[in-house]
Amino acid sequence: MTSDNGKPGFERLAREGLVERVAALLSNAIVTGKLAPGARLSESVVARDLGVSRAPVREAARLLESSGLVAYVPNRGFFVRQVSADAIDDLYELRLVIETAAVRRLIRGDTGPVIANLSRQVDELYRIADLGPDFDMLTQVQADIQFHRLLVAASGNPKLLAVFEQIATETEFSIMIVGQLYDDPHRIAETHLPIIDALRDGDEMRAVEALRFHIVVAQRVVTQKLRQLEKEQST
């Protein structure tokens, strides 16, 4: 996905679902670092590469703005967001609120179906961790986010899920910017198990504490690493 001039290029798209597909392509380019923080998102260049008009590119950029990946600067256009440690700290705090509320709702209903789904997702996390030289950090991060997406979706509250989806990609972005996982891949998989065990036992307090531990560990490591990067850049 690189053009002749060395800049990120994109393959041409068919007409169906253009805005969503453009948004997905740009999102992937941002999260994987092909479009770096601070880079200008040129509507004309992207539109030319994809073989579409500028309108769907502009709409896709608006979607990415709502998900926290790009920012609009008046009279200049869209730019990939510069991530700050304080913003990511706030992001994880919001995740705690959303997912804690989801767990409390979930545990008061039938947890059987979601426990099976969550267990399969942990198996997927272990499978990815076992890939060795073929291990891909983004795949692991997305699999981790999918576990939490399943958890929130099973709460039965579409508003919680809608907010979660707004910040899911931004969470992936923050971890990829740091350039390392917040823990050993096998350890990340393992820290999901206490959440499942507590849900299986119907223990709301233990489930919330297990979830809190899992998220706070990531929050602490990611924000500390970002603060270190910010300090290095400032000097």
Rank of each mutant, 00 (worst) to 15 (best):
V141K: 00
K7H: 11
I177G: 04
V221D: 11
E93W: 00
Q180A: 15
L26D: 01
N5V: 09
R120I: 11
S155T: 08
M176R: 00
I98D: 05
A198H: 10
D49Q: 09
K225Q: 14
L125S: 06
L25Y: 02
L96M: 10
K7M: 12
L94W: 01
E124F: 08
Q146C: 07
P74Y: 01
V19P: 03
L229S: 11
L64I: 08
E16M: 09
A24F: 03
T171S: 14
Q180I: 12
I88G: 05
V19A: 05
R62A: 14
K231P: 00
E230N: 06
I115D: 09
H148Y: 07
L41S: 04
G9R: 06
I88F: 10
Y92R: 05
T2Q: 15
V216K: 10
K7S: 13
A55D: 10
R206P: 10
V97N: 10
R40N: 12
A60V: 04
G17E: 15
S3V: 09
H214S: 11
V46R: 03
V141P: 02
E43F: 05
R104P: 03
R206N: 14
H186K: 08
D144E: 15
K225L: 15
L35W: 02
V57Q: 02
V70A: 08
K34C: 11
Q180K: 15
M205L: 11
R220K: 13
D4I: 09
V103F: 01
M137S: 13
T100G: 14
I195N: 09
E172P: 01
L25C: 03
G38L: 04
L64C: 07
A129Y: 09
G17Y: 14
L26W: 01
A29Y: 02
V114D: 03
